[in-house]
Simulated assay, not measured.
Amino acid sequence: MARPLKDPTGAELARLNLNVQARFKAAAKAKAQTHGMTLTDYLEGLIAADISDLQAATGIQEALIPKSA
């Protein structure tokens, strides 16, 4: 399941730019792939798992469930 191109509520998406060490990006991307997720989906999932208010928001959980779950 791919992440929708728009927020489930219809809100605009916000860009998040990160500068990380190349080895962290590679490791995160590889881990995301093991779950059948993109790097963006994986990072959103980590944030949602850490912030319970986001998990309760409509559509967030459904969009971020790893394929391996």
Rank of each mutant, 00 (worst) to 15 (best):
L5W: 05
K6H: 09
K6G: 06
P8C: 08
P8Q: 03
T9G: 10
T9F: 00
G10E: 05
A11H: 03
A11F: 02
A11Q: 03
L13P: 04
L13E: 13
L13H: 08
R15N: 14
L16C: 09
N17E: 12
N17Y: 01
N17C: 09
L18T: 00
N19W: 04
V20D: 03
F24A: 07
K25C: 00
A26Q: 13
A27L: 11
A27I: 03
A28H: 12
A28Q: 08
K29P: 01
K29W: 01
A30M: 11
K31G: 12
K31A: 15
K31Y: 10
A32E: 05
H35G: 09
G36Y: 05
G36L: 09
M37I: 04
L39P: 14
T40S: 15
T40H: 06
D41K: 12
D41Q: 14
Y42I: 06
L43G: 13
E44A: 12
E44Q: 13
L46C: 13
I47C: 13
D50P: 01
D50Y: 02
I51C: 07
S52T: 11
S52Q: 07
D53H: 04
L54I: 03
L54Q: 05
Q55P: 02
A57F: 01
G59C: 08
G59E: 01
I60Q: 00
Q61P: 07
E62I: 03
A63M: 09
A63E: 03
L64S: 02
I65C: 05
P66C: 01
K67S: 15
K67W: 01
